[in-house]
Amino acid sequence: MMKKTFWDRWGTPLILLIGFALSMALPASGLINPYIELVLKYIGINIILTISLNLVNGYMGEFSVGHAGFMAIGAYVSSILTVWVFPAAWEGVLFPLALLAGGIAAGLAGLGIAFPSFKTRGDYLAIVTLAFNMIIKSVLENLEVLGGPRGFMGMSKLTTLWWVYLVVVLVVYLARNFVYSSFGRGVLSIREDETAASLVSVNTRQVKVLTFVFSAFLAGLAGGLFAHELQFINPRSFTILKSTDMLVMVYLGGIGSLGGSILGATVFTVVMEGLRSVLQLLNISQEWRLVVAPLMLILLMLFRPQGIMGLREFRFLIPLQERSEAIQKARETARTQRRIGEVRS
């Protein structure tokens, strides 16, 4: 057991507090222009999405390609609440409730998907989530009440930078506690070897379903934030293309790493936004921007499948009592991973 220093105990809360103050002060002071603020918000939303997908694809080793569907549910449910249900004067105060409702709705949808599809392992989840994504898009396009293919609008710009910041911090905190709980160990054990996991009395079915529900919940939260930033959502925002963006961010940052999710989302968002100006500068059609994300995905899988972080974790994201052992453990995990690769080949 390591001795707790002042910084171990108070460092993280202090930095978080400073971050919160900055997220309130920066946009108000006019030090950053609205475009930068927008990019920062997108980074935050993408971090939540990436963590959400990483829980399923990275930590649990299953494969979902339909998380944009959960995001869509979160976006529509929260928007319906703020536009139709909540009184206009109160919508600012009730916004977190709307986000939460969006997340819960997405979580329930996740339960509906997870329950039947975890009966078997393998490619089923990929196919089922894909079908789910398509069904959600198709249903939204056919619901005239919600604007059909034209989309849904009328939301106020409730997603401020500090809201994004708060939610991101909360999500990272929740995800960290989730991953490092004994439940989270169960999730990891399923990735490594499902049969062995069930032999050491991990209720694999339950663990898989609950992890998937939690992941869907997070995607729903991100959807709510996304909707109240854009103030306009339509079914086309939540296609398989969006799901692929999430995949790129997860594998760019590194599977099975929260720090990787944060880095992956940040790097991806900045690169994609940077590309916009570069293409404009070079007078090349913006359509080429869409070629980059799939290309990145291919190159990543071929040359650096472990992503930026590669199963490692930032020190501040590891619970205090585990920090000293964590580095050792990370090395061991990496070694096991390599060995698994060799055995599978």
Binding site: F63, P294, M296, I298, R344
Partner: peptide, 17 residues
């Protein structure tokens, strides 16, 4: 020789590309 899912992800990337 990589985990089976890698090729599926790559395939998704190739398609979108």
């Amino acid at each position: 020789t990589a985990p089976r899912i890698s090729a599926v992800i790559t395939a998704l990337g190739v398609g979108l590309f």
